[in-house]
Design a protein around this nucleic acid. Structure first.
Length: 577
DNA sequence: CTCAACTTTGGGGTAGGTAT
DNA sequence: ATACCTACCCCAAAGTTGAG
């Protein structure tokens, strides 16, 4: 059984000390939120043993639930010891709460969460633990695999997994939700997205000179590239950018609200004093306290000071503190501005992550694009790392380093360039994650009797045999069939995507393309996707009897087969031929 | 628009009183 | 002795002023 001092300590631990510096003589007051208090009995210089914890009279509504908690005991008699001084007097008399015995900290915790003001501290801790657990994702990674294996698609998931794992967990599988969150994060500059190509250069990626013509006078300015921009944002921010953004956002909302309302907005100070504000476009809000006679705007709350108070929490050097504080309070209450202090606490350990997605990373010339910065990417050489390194940039002459909260996700198409050919510099610095076709994703998709999963699996097995596994075909080419399950769609996919891809893989070695599609096993010629351009008869007609040259046998696609289900079945089932 | 120096206000904490 | 009340003091917040 806990006595008054122990309960008090437990509450301090669970709720924090923020609001309980003022205690009446007969009780410790603990503030749960703005309108909710609980008390612990208190005797000066002594310890109260019996039923030290006093809860709001309203808990009686939760009688059943409270009784169910183990280690909590009450006779449901309102105590006369400790009045709820925060509650208005009822018919001229103080209101009293119910007194409890509690067995241990856990019991107190359960009581608190029952009152509805769940001890968020615990939830937060739990969240942080899971976050830390998920945070094993490498700083630099490249998703590689054959075309159509959903590499780019997966970078979106990865990026959200890094930045907002809770969101991903919540909406796992809900593509539209995830995509919209992704777009939102891109808009907020938390995620950067670039696609490399042959002519992508250092100037685009890190920094370059940009010519400005000002009335015919040419001048040059250094312009930051994608990479430098996101690095700066990631490092300068740590958490500030996001919070400051949230703050500016809230202020903007307030200003807009004022415009719309076309009238003063009423606010309250910390003590509940009412005052109204006006905004006339400047850097301050004009204050009109209710309890003052003067009507001209004598007082102002500068927005800069509201921001300062928000960021530092210190009232030092801020004039008209009461109103500045009131404004901030209003922003928090009406525009959901979150506590900045809390954010620092949350993110100091797990800095806000940023993500740069580099699509087709192998298409760019790595040493041209990264230049000397390639070393800075290494986790150990990041800012704050063990062997932190920085470099002076050539144009701006600024000292530059890569922050450790920037994740880089690349995608690489192994059909373009096999892994073995990849720039050594990249291989050393990135973790490579293989993405292979997942034919099982297509299982159950049936187009006029064609088992798409089997079809894909068989094609890929043949390719592996004839070429290698890096030139297989991804499942995503066939994904549209899940929506539109028709032979016409399948024919389009083959005609426009699969066949061109195969032709490219095999350098127009048509015979092999045919083999991949099982044409060699089909006895019915009309089912072959690739047919000889000239029949024996026409060769005879064109070239005469003596002509017998091996090897040169032109092939062409047999478009008729594309719409024949049997032709597709023949790919994996030789019985069909 | 900022700041410092001021007065006024009112709520918390306390001691000590009162009722039980 | 305990439970509760309350007058009063103190101090931070609210409000004021004038100068820069």
């Amino acid at each position: 059984m806990l006595n008054s001092e122990q309960v008090h300590k437990v509450l301090l631990k669970l709720i924090g000390t923020a609001h309980n510096h003022n205690h009446p003589s007969y009780a410790y007051e603990h503030c749960l939120d703005q309108n909710s208090y609980i008390y612990v009995k208190r005797k000066l210089g002594k310890v109260v043993e019996k039923q030290p914890l006093v809860l709001h009279p309203g808990v009686v509504n939760l009688k059943g639930e409270v009784d169910a908690i183990e280690g909590v005991e009450t006779d449901w008699q309102t105590t006369k010891n400790t009045s709820f001084r925060r509650l208005p007097k009822f018919e001229g008399k103080s209101q009293y709460g119910y007194a409890f015995n509690v067995e241990n900290e856990h019991a107190v915790q359960q009581l608190l969460s029952l009152i509805g003001l769940a001890n968020q501290s615990n939830e937060d801790i739990a969240k942080q633990i899971t976050k830390a657990g998920d945070q094993v994702t490498a700083l630099n990674q490249i998703l590689y695999g054959p075309p159509g294996t959903g590499k780019t698609y997966n970078t979106i998931n990865q990026a959200i997994a890094i930045i907002d794992p809770d969101y991903l967990a919540q909406y796992e599988g809900n593509r539209t939700k995830i995509k919209s969150r992704f777009d939102e994060l891109v808009a907020k500059n938390r995620i950067g997205f670039v696609t490399f190509h042959q002519s992508f250069s250092y100037e685009d990626f890190v920094e370059g000179l940009k010519a400005n013509s000002d009335d015919g006078v040419l001048s040059y300015s250094v312009e930051a590239g994608v990479f430098k921009a996101i690095c700066e944002r990631a490092s300068s921010s740590h958490s500030q950018v996001v919070s400051v953004d949230a703050f500016e956002d809230a202020v903007l909302q307030l200003q807009e609200k004022y415009e719309e309302a076309d009238d003063r907005i009423e606010m309250e100070t910390v003590r509940g004093k009412k005052f109204e504000i006006e905004y006339s476009g400047g850097a301050t809000f004009k204050i009109f306290p209710h309890s003052t006679e003067s009507t001209d705007p004598k007082y102002v709350a500068s927005i800069a000071n509201v921001r300062k108070l928000y960021l530092t929490g210190s009232k030092q050097g801020i004039y008209n503190t009461s109103y500045v504080e009131g404004c901030l309070l209003y922003l928090k209450k009406h525009f959901g501005l979150k506590e900045y202090i809390a954010e620092i606490a949350n993110h100091e350990s797990t800095q806000q992550p940023f993500v740069l997605i580099i699509d087709e990373i192998n298409r760019g010339n790595i040493s041209n694009i990264f230049g000397e910065l390639i070393t800075l990417i290494e986790p150990s050489k990041r800012a704050g790392g063990a062997e932190a390194l920085s470099v002076k940039l050539p144009y701006s002459k600024e000292l530059f380093s890569v922050p450790s909260n920037l994740h880089i996700i690349g995608t690489m198409n192994t059909a373009d360039k096999s892994l073995a050919q990849v720039d050594i510099a990249l291989r050393r610095r990135f973790e490579f994650v293989e993405m292979m076709p997942k034919h099982e994703l297509m299982s159950g998709v049936d187009v006029e009797g064609i088992d798409i999963a089997r079809l894909l699996e068989t094609i890929n097995k043949r390719i592996e045999l004839l070429y290698d596994r890096e030139h297989t075909i991804g499942h995503s080419f066939f994904l549209p069939l899940k929506e539109e399950c028709t032979i016409e769609r399948l024919a389009r996919i083959f005609e426009l995507e699969i066949l061109p891809l195969l032709e490219e893989y095999f350098f127009e070695d048509w015979e092999r393309v045919g083999q991949v599609l099982g044409d060699h096993l089909k006895s019915d010629i009309s089912l072959k996707f690739i047919e000889e351009k000239f029949t024996d008869a026409s060769v005879l007609q064109l070239m005469g009897n003596d002509w017998s040259q091996e090897g040169i046998r032109p092939y062409q696609r047999n478009n008729a087969a594309l719409l024949n289900p049997k032709a597709y079945k023949g790919i994996y089932d030789s019985q069909q031929g």
